[in-house]
Simulated assay, not measured.
Amino acid sequence: MGGSAFKLLQTSSFPRLPSPVYQALKARLTPVLQKLYDYVAVPAEAPEKMDHGDLDFVVYQPRLSSSHCLTPGLVNAPHQQVKTALGASHCILEDGNRTSNFAIAVDRGAWGSVGCAEQEENFRQVADEHVIYYQVDVHVCADKNEWERVVYFHSYGDLGMIQGLVATNVGLVLGANGLKFAHPPHPTLTLSQDFAQIAKFFGWSHERRSLGFNTRQEAFEWVSESRFFDLQYIRTSGKGTGKVKAQRKMYFDFVAWANERSAQSGVTSVDMEKVERRQERVREEALVEFGRRDEVATVVREFEGRKKIKNGFNGTVVDAWIGSNGNWRKVKTVMDKVRERHGGEEGILRILESEGEDGLKQRVMSVSEESTSIP
């Protein structure tokens, strides 16, 4: 979730944190933030990760106390209180449902208590004025559901992104905001924001994920347990898979692992026609599973109806039918009267669907003949 946000400070001032240092920092700052927010969590770290760029907290619901009164509806604890509580020297503050960044100077010798004194001194030697910082990011959520989703999706490193890749391969979109159904040109539809429900649909054990993973291999094997992880269809690059930053090491390791498994099983290429047919089937299954099939059908039907009306009953078409030679006032009057007489846009659509263009033209001409007095 992180990366150095402090452009005015040298990159060398923010060393990567050895795991013992990171764990000690998390243990020290978690109770600090728990005094300011009711819900505080650090997403579970990627398995086998040896060092860390920053420490990410996900928080929700500022605590009300005699020390600070908050305006109802605000989601942030007062920034100055957070800065002071963390002991930050520098900060980049964001109001509302966003992430604020804090730079906390490392006390000289602090790493010695966890056996990393030599690393600390080495980092200080290359840092500006020999001062090094922890970067701590605090992501504030708008509600408890969002807090749970963000913690889930960003736990275990890139695992959420890897799950998203599996979803992409069956024509769905999975991210921190849940499972979505994209069907341009219509608005994207959210199928579910309940990750336990989503995991069940994909065939992932939600309980097993919650126990954590000791190795990346364990995490990759868990992903492959999905009923949609099929080496005949899996695509790790190309259209729809998106570009991933090079620092996403766990994601790239998964891609290499999946490609190696495909090669070992004799799969050398993916039949895109089969992939697309499979996507259609799974997308339809998802609509049924999450109870959105009728809603999508209605949206598509209404969209197609509007398009049919736009193409078959517009000013240019009616002008040509009645021969008004660009008398747009007359055209508008005729169109308004046709709508009034035949039940509005819905009535026009029924005529187009049952009788076609000729049936609608006949009604337009009838109204036009009655309106010969229009100048």
Rank of each mutant, 00 (worst) to 15 (best):
D56G: 11
L64D: 09
V59K: 03
G96R: 13
D95F: 05
D54F: 07
D56Y: 12
H52C: 04
P47C: 02
T84V: 13
H90T: 00
P72C: 03
S89V: 09
Y60T: 09
V82H: 04
V82A: 03
G53F: 08
V59L: 06
C91A: 15
K49I: 00
L93P: 00
Q80W: 10
L55I: 12
C91I: 01
S65E: 12
F57I: 05
E94C: 15
L86T: 03
T84L: 14
H90K: 07
H52N: 08
E48S: 09
T84N: 14
S67T: 11
N97V: 07
R63T: 12
P62T: 00
D51Y: 06
L55T: 08
V82R: 04
S66T: 12
D51K: 07
E94R: 15
A85P: 09
N97C: 12
L74Y: 13
A77R: 02
F57A: 04
S66Y: 11
A88Y: 09
A85I: 02
F57H: 05
G53M: 07
D54A: 07
K49S: 00
Q80T: 11
E94V: 11
Y60I: 05
P78T: 13
G53R: 10
N97Y: 09
L93C: 00
R63D: 05
Q80D: 13
R98H: 15
M50Q: 10
I92L: 14
V59F: 06
C91D: 14
V75F: 05
G87A: 08
S65R: 10
P72S: 03
V59S: 05
H68A: 15
H52G: 05
M50T: 09
C69W: 13
